[in-house]
Computed example of a mutant assay.
Amino acid sequence: MRSNGFEQTALRIGDVLPPRDVAGIVLPGPSRWYALRVAPQREDEVEGWLRKRGVYAFHPVLKRQTRARGVVRTYHRRYLPGYVFARFCGDPVVHMVMSCPWVIGALCRADGHWGVLEPSRLQAIHAMRKRDERIERDLAADQLRRREASRMRAGDHAMFRVGPFAELPCEVVELVADGGVRLRFQLFGREVVVDGVAEDLVPLRKAG
Score class of each variant (00 low, 15 high):
residue 193 V to K: 09
residue 95 H to W: 03
residue 158 A to R: 03
residue 39 A to Y: 01
residue 17 L to H: 05
residue 38 V to A: 05
residue 120 S to H: 08
residue 34 Y to C: 06
residue 202 V to Q: 13
residue 154 A to D: 06
residue 170 C to M: 10
residue 72 V to H: 04
residue 59 H to C: 10
residue 58 F to M: 07
residue 16 V to W: 07
residue 113 H to L: 08
residue 135 I to K: 14
residue 108 C to N: 06
residue 23 A to H: 12
residue 140 A to Y: 00
residue 81 P to A: 11
residue 34 Y to Q: 01
residue 133 E to F: 00
residue 153 R to V: 03
residue 98 M to K: 07
residue 146 R to M: 07
residue 157 H to W: 11
residue 11 L to S: 12
residue 65 Q to G: 12
residue 63 K to L: 08
residue 108 C to K: 10
residue 61 V to Y: 01
residue 198 A to E: 00
residue 24 G to R: 11
residue 37 R to I: 05
residue 20 R to A: 15
residue 26 V to F: 06
residue 177 A to T: 05
residue 180 G to Y: 10
residue 124 A to L: 09
residue 37 R to S: 04
residue 174 E to T: 13
residue 51 R to L: 15
residue 32 R to L: 08
residue 142 D to W: 05
residue 199 E to R: 14
residue 141 A to Q: 14
residue 42 R to S: 15
residue 26 V to A: 04
residue 192 V to I: 10
residue 8 Q to E: 08
residue 37 R to G: 00
residue 4 N to Y: 08
residue 88 F to R: 11
residue 205 R to N: 12
residue 21 D to Q: 11
residue 197 V to D: 00
residue 57 A to Y: 01
residue 170 C to G: 01
residue 72 V to D: 09
residue 180 G to R: 15
residue 106 A to I: 04
residue 63 K to H: 05
residue 70 G to K: 13
residue 151 R to W: 02
residue 160 F to L: 07
residue 157 H to Q: 14
residue 117 L to D: 00
residue 56 Y to E: 15
residue 103 V to P: 05
residue 32 R to D: 04
residue 208 G to M: 03
residue 85 F to R: 09
residue 103 V to R: 06
residue 20 R to S: 12
residue 99 S to Q: 08
residue 28 P to I: 09
residue 33 W to M: 08
residue 118 E to W: 02
residue 149 A to C: 15
residue 61 V to I: 11
residue 92 P to M: 11
residue 195 D to C: 10
residue 28 P to Q: 10
residue 91 D to T: 15
residue 186 Q to W: 05
residue 187 L to K: 15
